[in-house]
Design a protein around this nucleic acid. Structure first.
Lengths: 193, 193
DNA sequence: ATAATTCCGTACCGATCAGTACAAAAAGGA
DNA sequence: TCCTTTTTGTACTGATCGGTACGGAATTAT
């Protein structure tokens, strides 16, 4: 038999995800990846395939983690309204903490790759839709419990929320005044009344 | 004296803008630029400086044109509400016509360059703010004429609008179902009631 | 210990990148 | 017509890109 791998595949994939998330696809070089992953070029190709395959694996990993995060968050808070507000507030808080501000991996990919590649358009569109469904289900729960008004169109409102979230993630990349995004968020949440 | 330029500087700049708008900064090569601009490499450097200088000139040209477009649009329509709806409706319509979907040059730049370059963060943030002011002024006019409710917070609502617009431009890059974005838009415009 | 098998490190591939040197060509002023 | 000045086209620079060939090192089974 042969020797076994000397590195942790999951850890390496996670490191690659960080690089792609921060720099995007084109701006990330194979040297960037191997340096951060702590493995050699040859090992990378043998384990993850070429650059695009690795990127796809990273994006999938990110999507799963993110969906699990939002699913948990939307069920934990005391009220639906507060849960949703908390999702957006966390995004704002993270943007002013992190350096540099990475935003959302899926949204970044949507901007960089979706327009020229139908496969990436499909994947990122799917991620967006998954998130919208989570919001819709949360809103519907809120309507059932009486927390939210019965007249709400849960599908339409949740669609507004995810479109707005994409806008928030993008806008934060320019480091606007906190007041700017916080005012916009407060206003948006009036849609839940 | 010497010979005069053989090409139209404005036309060349406009051509460069189209390429950068469509492909972004990094993905655009000097060869892409010279091919579309119809000039030689040397002429490009002599006239516009290096790649980044040319990009900045293109972004400035785009911003001026876009602001003029929105300023005119927000004053032309019959009602403020309809004028604003029309701004967003045009974005949606353009996204399904154009191939590929270029979105907004300034927003694209915000995603690609702002996180790693404070100068680009400043420029794109400024563009975003300028647009927000246009919306705010329009809303204030609507409140004065009685078209819109007096209780509106024009600044906060206009901030929501531009954040949402960024989200719309980004979301459209994944070619979602029209229903998706149209539902979200109808819902968002309830903020103007 | 030895053989078999897999991983790892280096060094390289052709292609392309942004940017430039240089000389021929062209145009204006005299 | 001739000289000066600028533009233009070609060909090149060193660097970096994604991807790979290949041999030595390490590890397991025999």
């Amino acid at each position: 038999m042969a020797r076994s791998k000397e590195f942790d595949e999951r850890a390496a994939l996670d490191a690659a995800m960080q690089v792609f998330w921060e720099k995007g696809y084109e701006a990330t070089s194979l040297s960037d990846l191997t340096a951060r992953m702590g493995i050699q070029r040859t090992s990378l190709y043998a384990t993850f395939g070429d650059k695009q395959s690795l990127f796809l694996a990273c994006l999938a990993k990110y999507s799963e983690a993110t969906m699990a995060y939002y699913q948990a968050k939307l069920q934990k808070e005391t009220t639906i309204r507060e849960a949703i507000r908390s999702c957006f507030a966390d995004i704002i808080a993270a943007a002013y903490d992190a350096k540099p501000n990475r935003g959302c991996f899926s949204i970044n990919t949507m901007v960089e790759l979706a327009p020229h590649d139908p496969e990436f358009a499909r994947i990122t569109r799917h991620n967006q839709t998954q998130l919208q469904v989570l919001f819709q289900q949360a809103i519907e729960r809120g309507m059932e419990t009486g927390e939210l008004a019965e007249k709400l169109d849960a599908a339409a409102v949740s669609r507004s929320l995810v479109v707005y979230m994409a806008g928030l993630l993008v806008t934060l990349k320019s480091k606007p005044e906190r007041e700017f995004v916080e005012d916009s968020l407060s206003t948006l949440l009036q849609l839940l009344k």
